[in-house]
């Protein structure tokens, strides 16, 4: 809660807040800048065929990914990734809620789930290729099947650990089943679910790339392998940079959403620390 002292601080000394932001930005970009400069110098002093200079990679990035490849490879890949993430999260939360709230189902499925979770997701690709052929649905299925586990398992755990007093409160006020789900079970499981979503996002990105490395002729993963096979080294690196940027973008969206969904959770944490 804000006290008079807090509001005073941002009044006469309002500039200090701006200065703090600038300093924070400087801290954040300092290491990347140093790394890129060091790389530039190194590339100038002793050129390496497999490590082209950052300038060459930047040029390759613009020429490769902002040309026809944008519509042929980048957008279809990212669209598949987006759809697959939405599917993985939806299926994970829905199935996790049902399993978490049904004790007999949970006991029945737990060993099986542990087994399937332990399988490294990329080995699903040959199986799904056999079953579905080399299609968009196959790629989607591979991403979803590899990525929905963290959301599923975290939802199961989150849903079953609803606080007993909160549950008794809901019972005594005779909340309906739908109300309990909407206002008690899901919000109270939300911190766990978000932990799962974070893992799901990074697995989904990995699965998207891998699903495009076999038997295909388009997509980000395919392009990177293609450049490598044709010794287009700067182009290959620019693809890796692009994937890194996609990962950073996903993380930023996640943080944005999480801050909103779990505002109460972070609020409690801050109150406890104070």
């Amino acid at each position: 809660m804000s006290t008079p002292a807090d509001t005073m601080k941002s009044g006469p000394r309002g500039r200090s807040r701006g200065t703090r932001t600038v300093i924070a930005v400087l801290y954040a970009v300092a290491v990347p800048v140093v790394l890129i400069v060091a790389w530039l110098i190194w590339a100038g002093v002793s050129p390496q065929i497999f490590f082209p200079s950052p300038i060459a990679i930047a040029e390759a990035f613009v020429n490769t990914w902002l040309g026809p490849s944008l519509t042929n490879d980048v957008i279809p890949s990212l669209a598949r990734l987006g759809v697959a993430i939405v599917l993985a999260i939806t299926i994970g939360i829905a199935a996790g809620t049902v399993i978490g709230l049904t004790p007999w189902l949970r006991e029945l499925l737990e060993p099986v789930l542990e087994f399937f979770r332990a399988i490294p997701p990329p080995v699903l690709i040959p199986v799904f290729t056999l079953l579905m052929g080399i299609t968009t649905s196959m790629k989607l299925a591979v991403i979803v099947a590899g990525a929905f586990w963290p959301v599923l398992l975290n939802t199961i755990d989150g849903v079953r650990s609803t606080d007993s007093v909160m549950t008794e409160t809901a019972q005594s006020f005779r909340l309906t089943r739908a109300e309990r789900l909407r206002y008690l079970v899901l919000p109270s499981a939300a911190p766990r679910i978000m932990t799962g979503v974070r893992q799901t996002l990074s697995i989904a990105l990995i699965m998207m790339v891998i699903s495009e490395m076999f038997n295909t002729s388009s997509g980000l993963g395919y392009r990177i392998v293609y450049f490598q096979r044709n010794y287009l080294i700067a182009e290959m690196w620019s693809g890796i940079v692009l994937l890194g940027l996609v990962g950073v973008f996903l993380a930023a969206v996640f943080t944005f959403v999480e801050r909103r969904v779990l505002r109460w959770y972070h609020g409690i944490k801050e109150t406890e620390r104070a």
Partner: peptide, 18 residues
């Protein structure tokens, strides 16, 4: 239907997300 409860553990009886 016509009974309301107030628990000792107010922190666990109110929903912090509401």
């Amino acid at each position: 239907e016509s009974m309301a409860l107030v628990f000792q553990e107010y922190g666990r009886s109110l929903y912090p997300w509401l």
